[in-house]
Design a protein around this nucleic acid. Structure first.
Length: 524
DNA sequence: GAGTGCTACGAGACATGA
DNA sequence: TCATGTCTCGTAGCACTC
């Protein structure tokens, strides 16, 4: 009895020590990671400041030039709707900037808007370097990016998403589908006389009504310049998010004909920290989740050996708190409009970009429009998951794409999965692949109700109900439902023992021979 | 409990036709 | 380029045997 008690005490003390050591180690690693994050953010901050200064200088110069020329279009000649102009790289910067400036000036914003716009003036410019701007699907966000913090209550500091939506493309779950629509106008509207020509840009309206179209179809931003026969997404960093098809897509400029640098490829990629640390799907969704920070430490923490120790129980929470605290601190340090993908990924699942979508769109239209977008030298596709909008990951994509451009890398596989980084040569392959992440299973067996991601798998599944076994072993006559099963079975006929087909490892520890041995289990 | 074989499914690669 | 179908590999789960 005494011995047992002593053993228990010793065991507990050992566990306690181990738990403390583990917590310390985890804290250390988190701190290290945070240091990196801070460093990167500081660097980004400097870059942003420089860009802001440049923008301010250019804006002031532009205004001076306009005053000299006396060029200020009348508000009555402008579109009565608030618009967003998407940069077309084929246009000179002065042109689109002029257009945008005039639009914003003529839209007669609320006085507070003006103030805020002045404060955040650099963000007004849909610069080529701010590709994330183009992705916003929410007019509220469009307003926000110009400085107005819609969604945040007066006197209340804006939420992280609100403050960073400009870069993070958060689709607010409480926004109605109609609200989250951006309408495009140029292609189907006659140019109004006196209107400053926005030939190569697409003018978005948050209120515009197109009587010749069903309202339900107004769920996708398709940026396309019909006059120039090139999409306005010609800029390789211009994206559009659509919530129509539960898929994740991107615009691609494979030819690079719109880019002087000839960017060859900007397919999706995901950063490792994103795919590994971000819980994309909320726990209640029933969809698969990527391991979160908590998950990463979870297995060891929740294994039975650790259960008696509260320290270890709290370790994961501690990490979570730590990361959250850091994220909060970082957010406070970050200026408006700045984003950090690392911060995003560290910020645990509850505040991640992928939030439950509360509205659905018509997938069929998305497909049609997708096809439209896929035509031409530029491919404007759209993005979301089933019920989850993309946002911060999109930002990661932009960054990754820019990295690719700057490095001049090119690949045949232009479409990469945001989640796992796998690449595909065809867009539809990526689309199909994404089902494995989104959990979308469009093909359902009528007999058992089971769903499948691919139709061929459903067809193959049908033999379960039919009892058909079309594949027969030529040696023993045994039938199988699948060829792979038969082939696997046939291997058992070879030499009676599969192991005999391989060389026994001379050294049990040798990884090569061990691998061969592992293969003797016939692909198991 | 370990090893083995089978079933069934997930998913990538590829071919083909529209 | 997309949709569809086929082929294929890998693997989880289960049952059975030793």
């Amino acid at each position: 009895m005494m011995a047992s008690c002593n053993f228990q005490e010793q065991f507990l003390s050992i566990m306690e020590v181990l738990a403390k050591a583990a917590v310390a180690e985890i804290n250390k690693r988190v701190d290290d990671s945070c240091a990196v994050i801070r460093l990167e953010m500081t660097q980004s901050q400097r870059d942003i400041d420089v860009l802001k200064r440049k923008c301010q200088i250019m804006e002031s110069e532009l205004k001076k030039t306009r005053r000299r020329k006396g060029f200020y279009p009348m508000a009555s000649e402008r579109s009565p709707y608030p618009v967003k102009i998407v940069l077309n790289k084929q246009r000179s910067s002065s042109q689109w900037r002029d257009s945008e400036m005039s639009v914003e000036e003529d839209s007669q914003p609320h006085p507070t808007d003006v103030e805020q716009r002045v404060e955040t003036e650099p963000t007004l410019i849909k610069d080529e370097e701010t590709a994330e701007d183009v992705w916003k699907v929410d007019p509220q966000e469009e307003i926000r990016i110009t400085g107005e913090e819609s969604g945040s209550k007066p006197g209340k500091p804006p939420s992280f998403e609100q403050r960073h939506c400009g870069e993070d493309f958060i689709t607010q779950p409480n926004i109605s589908p109609r609200d989250s629509v951006e309408h495009y106008t140029n292609s189907d509207r006659a140019e109004e006389p006196g209107t400053t020509r926005l030939a190569s840009t697409e003018v978005f309206s948050t209120e515009q009504h197109r009587p010749d179209e069903d309202d339900d179809s107004l769920d996708l931003v398709m940026v396309k310049d019909e006059k120039d026969q090139t999409t306005a997404l010609a800029g390789p960093d211009q994206f559009v998010i659509d919530e129509s098809d539960g898929q994740l897509w991107t615009s691609v400029d494979p030819g690079g004909d719109t880019d002087p640098v000839c960017h060859p490829d900007f397919s999706f990629h995901s950063t490792e920290e994103y795919s590994q640390n971000i819980s994309i799907f909320p726990s209640h969704s029933g969809l698969p989740s990527f391991p979160t920070m908590t998950d990463e430490v979870g297995p060891s923490l929740h294994s039975s050996i650790w259960k008696p120790h509260a320290n270890m129980f709290s370790a994961a929470k501690h990490i979570t708190r730590h990361v959250r605290t850091l994220a909060d601190e970082t957010r406070q340090q970050m200026p408006e409009g700045q984003s950090s993908e690392r911060l995003n990924s560290s910020n645990e699942g509850n505040s991640l970009a992928l939030q439950p979508r509360q509205h659905q769109y018509r997938a069929s239209e998305a497909k049609v429009r997708l096809s439209e977008c896929m035509t031409g030298s530029n491919i404007a596709t759209t993005s979301t998951f089933s019920g989850y909008s993309l946002s911060r990951s999109s930002f990661n994509m932009v960054k990754r794409m820019r990295t690719q451009w700057s490095s001049g890398s090119t690949t045949e596989r232009r479409f990469s999965c945001t989640f796992c980084g796998k690449s595909f040569p065809r867009f539809w392959q990526l689309k199909e692949h994404l089902r494995s992440h989104t959990g979308e299973k469009p093909y359902t067996c009528e007999q058992c109700g089971r769903s499948f991601t691919k139709q061929c798998n459903l067809i193959r599944h049908a033999v379960v109900h039919s009892g058909e076994k079309p594949y027969k072993c030529t040696q023993c006559g045994k039938c199988f439902t699948q060829r792979s099963s038969m082939k696997s079975h046939q291997r058992t006929h070879i030499g009676e023992s599969p192991v005999s087909q391989y060389v026994a490892p001379a050294y049990p520890g040798d990884p090569h021979t061990s691998l061969m041995l592992s293969q003797t289990r016939w692909n198991k």
